[in-house]
Amino acid sequence: MKPRRSMLYMPGNSPGMLQHAPVFGADSVLLDLEDAVAVAEKDAARRLVAHFLRVLDFGRVEVTVRINGADTPYFETDLEEIIPARPSAVRLPKCQSPGDVLRADALMTTIEERHGMEAGTVGIHAMLETARGLEHAFEIATASPRVKALTLGGQDLTADLGVQKTREGWELFYARGRVVMAARAAGIAAFDTVWTDVDDPEGLAAEAKQIVEMGFTGKAAIHPSQIPVIHEAFRPDPREFRRAWRIVTAAEEAERQGKGVLLVDGRMVDGPIVVRAQRLLDLGVLYGMEGDETA
């Protein structure tokens, strides 16, 4: 799984922001056609994003586009213009059921075929932001091979639940657990919701640490200043990283020798632990960590 620790929301109708998308240091950017764009400018934002997707070199930054929901008049036109411009994925807001994914999937396939693209080129990140959507989390995650991530929409969900979003975030605890469990069960990424108070980096740091410990693979950001805070939360503990390096090295050696059982630091290690260790190594590389230092 490619690390996507941070996903920076960028308003789709702001060329000044869009043209700098590759340089903010985020692992991925979310070009927003939904909440960040006024109704009268939906057409302009859609066209601007489509042009930028075609000509701008985003480098290693993964590019996704949040389109307008299926319950809006913009949904189909968004897909018609955005899919041929080949973003990595589109983020589908307010997914309530597997049917929402299947409807988008069918439309995307038609558009891809019409433009000579291989079906399934563009992925789906399904946003869960209603109680009903959360209750269908696993079915949504597995509705189509296009679904590459589940993402939690905390603002709309708290509104749907009729509760306040608090600094501690207990009102989202169950929802977060549910999203992580469903995404992991489906073998896809799990992205957490935004931290809305740009002037409270301590609050963001605490929340980011919590969601990393819960098993999320990434978190959305609404301002470039939030990116380093989120990345810091994902930084592996150096001792854990060195142990992961020993596990992966030992697993490779065992495979060469045809051994089934693996012992590292005197403890037996099995398949899932090797997979987790490899994930930790991939993450550590992003922080310039090296595994062959002895601890």
Partner: peptide, 17 residues
């Protein structure tokens, strides 16, 4: 100070409007 992509997108939308 618009990039060409921006100029193109704005002109196309103005025409369609």
């Amino acid at each position: 100070g618009a990039l060409e992509a921006t100029l193109r997108a704005r002109l196309e939308i103005a025409l369609e409007r």
